[in-house]
Design a protein around this nucleic acid. Structure first.
Lengths: 213, 213
DNA sequence: GTCTATAATGAGATAGAC
DNA sequence: GTCTATCTCATTATAGAC
C-alpha cells in the first residue's frame, strides 16, 4: 500500500535532509555532477559525510532528488501561471513565452541563491544525455503544456518545428541566465529590459519557423 | 628567440601526440572535463598513461590544447567563409548567420566523429565559467568579426543587443547539435532542412531585437 | 537518526629504466 | 621519446558504535 518506509521521519530528520539537499544544490550547480564531491556537500551542509549517504543514497540518487525537489515546485508554478494566462484570454506567442520564462526569472531575481543555482543545475541536466530520463520526467510534461497552447495559436504549424522552437528558446534562456557574462562584456547588467529582449528574440524566431512553408 | 623546445619533434612523436589529442577530444566531449580520466584517454589512444602527461602536460593543459587545435582550424574556416560571403556582396542577416553555422554543420556531417565531438566539446567550454579565458581566446575573435558585419547592416542597433543575439544564436546552435534527441522525439532526424530552420529562428529573433526601440 | 572510522577503488602526477 | 612502476591523494561507499 505504502512505500517501504517504516515510520514517518522526525522533524529533525527532515530538517537535516533539507540542509543536505540545499548544500547539494549549490555544489552540483557550481561544479556539475562529476566535479562535485560528497565531501564538499557534507562540508557545506555542516554534517558528516555518512549522513549524506543516509539521506541521499548514492551520489546519482542524491543528484536526482536535488533536481526533482526544485523542478517539481517550478512545474507547479509554471502550470499555474499558464492557467492564469489562459483565464485572462487573448493569448499570443509572446505572452506564452513570457509567462514561461518570467516564472523562473522572477524567482531567480527574488528567490535567493538557491533559485539562481537551480538555473545552472538545469543547464547541466539539459546538456548531458546522462540525464535524459530525468529531463523527460522533470521538464517535458510542463514543456508539453506550453507547446500545446502555442500550437493552438498556429494550427497549421508542424509539431516538429514547434518542438525545435521550444528547445532553441529554452537554450537561449539558459544562455541568458548562465552566460550573461558574455553579453555583459559589451553592455550593461541583467535587468528587466533584458528579459524582454530574450522573449522578443524567442518569440520572433519561434513565429518565423511556425509560419514557414 | 624560440620557445624552450630544444629540437624539432620527430615524425613519430607528432603522430603520437596527434593520437593522444584525438583520443582526448573524444573522451572530453563524451564525459566533460571532470568526468574524463587520463586513463580513459590513454586507453582510447592505445598508449601508456605516462605518455599522456609527457605530450599533454597536466589534465587542464591537455584539455586546452585539445580545444585550441580544433578551434583554430574552425576559426580559419569561418573567417574565410565570411570573406567569401563579403566578396559576393548582398549581405543579409540571414546569410551571415547561415555562413557562421553552416561552416561547422558541414564539417559535423561530413568531417567524421571528431568534428561531431568538437560540437559537444564547445558546449562544455561555453557553459563552464572555468573556461572563460579559453572561450575568449578561441571563440571571441571570430564571433566579433561576424558581429561587426551584422552591426554594419543595422547601424542604429545597440551593440549590447547584438551581443545578446549572438549568444542566444550560438546557444541555439549548440542545442540543435547536442540536444537534437529532444527535438527528434517529436519529429524526424537532422537534415539540411533543419539547419534552415535553425537559421530562420535565429535570424528572425536577431532582427527583432536589433530593430527594437 | 546520528556520527566515526575505515574499506576499496580510482584518480593525477612523477621518477627513472630503456 | 617511450614506457613501467609507483607515489600520493581524494573519492564513494559501508560497517558499526552511540
Amino acid at each position: 500500500m505504502s512505500t517501504l518506509r517504516k515510520r514517518a521521519p522526525s522533524a529533525r530528520s527532515l530538517e537535516t535532509k533539507a540542509k543536505i539537499l540545499d548544500a547539494a544544490e549549490m555544489v552540483f550547480a557550481e561544479r556539475g555532477f562529476e566535479g562535485a564531491s560528497l565531501r564538499d556537500i557534507a562540508g557545506q551542509a555542516a554534517v558528516p559525510v555518512g549522513l549524506v549517504h543516509h539521506h541521499g543514497g548514492s551520489k546519482e540518487e542524491l543528484f536526482c532528488q536535488t533536481v526533482r525537489r526544485r523542478a517539481s515546485e517550478m512545474a507547479d508554478i509554471r502550470q499555474q501561471s499558464l492557467e492564469e494566462l489562459k483565464a485572462a484570454g487573448d493569448l499570443t506567442l509572446h505572452k506564452i513565452l513570457d509567462c514561461f520564462m518570467r516564472a523562473y526569472m522572477t524567482l531567480a531575481e527574488t528567490g535567493g541563491d538557491h533559485w539562481r543555482a537551480y538555473g545552472r543545475l538545469v543547464a547541466h541536466v539539459s546538456s548531458d544525455p546522462r540525464w535524459r530520463e530525468l529531463t523527460a520526467e522533470c521538464f517535458d510534461p510542463t514543456a508539453g503544456l506550453y507547446l500545446d497552447e502555442i500550437l493552438k495559436l498556429y494550427p497549421k504549424a508542424d509539431r516538429a518545428a514547434a518542438a525545435a522552437g521550444q528547445v532553441y528558446s529554452v537554450s537561449s534562456m539558459l544562455a541568458h541566465l548562465n552566460s550573461g557574462w558574455r553579453i555583459d562584456a559589451l553592455g550593461d547588467g541583467h535587468n528587466e529590459r533584458e528579459l524582454d529582449r530574450l522573449v522578443t528574440f524567442c518569440a520572433a524566431g519561434f513565429e518565423a519557423i511556425l509560419i514557414k512553408v
